[in-house]
Simulated assay, not measured.
Amino acid sequence: MSVRRILRIGRSLGVTLPAQEVRELGLEEGTPVEVQVDRVHQRVIIRPLGPAGTVDPAFIEEARRFAERHRSTLEELARR
């Protein structure tokens, strides 16, 4: 773990990441990331997003189950 400081970047604030660690994660400048603030545990979590167009397989499976459970309602809505 390394200690970093919050820096002013234009009108925003940011934290730099060590280049070596970023490379080891396969990330580069411009990689889209999700930033999650956990106020309870006072931490910030930064996760890279998957490539554009990819969908979490767990989400796909849940959507399939939802569609099966509510098939008749969804078909009725499609007819309107």
Rank of each mutant, 00 (worst) to 15 (best):
Q36N: 09
V40N: 02
T31I: 04
V3D: 12
A63D: 01
T73F: 06
R64Q: 07
T54Y: 14
P18M: 03
Q36D: 02
V37K: 02
V33G: 06
R79E: 06
R5Q: 08
A67N: 11
G30Y: 00
G30R: 04
A19K: 04
V40A: 13
I45G: 06
R47L: 10
E68Q: 10
R23N: 13
E61K: 06
A58N: 08
V33F: 05
R65H: 08
V15Y: 01
D56R: 15
H41K: 11
I6P: 00
E28M: 07
R65P: 02
G53D: 10
A78T: 00
P18N: 03
E24Y: 09
R8F: 06
L13K: 08
A63Q: 01
V22A: 12
R5Y: 14
F59T: 08
R8K: 15
G10I: 11
G10L: 15
P57V: 07
F66Y: 10
R39D: 05
P51F: 09
L74F: 01
A52N: 07
I45W: 07
G10W: 09
V35Y: 13
R65K: 15
V35P: 07
A63I: 10
E75G: 02
T73L: 09
R69Y: 08
P32I: 01
E61D: 15
A78K: 09
L77H: 02
H41Q: 11
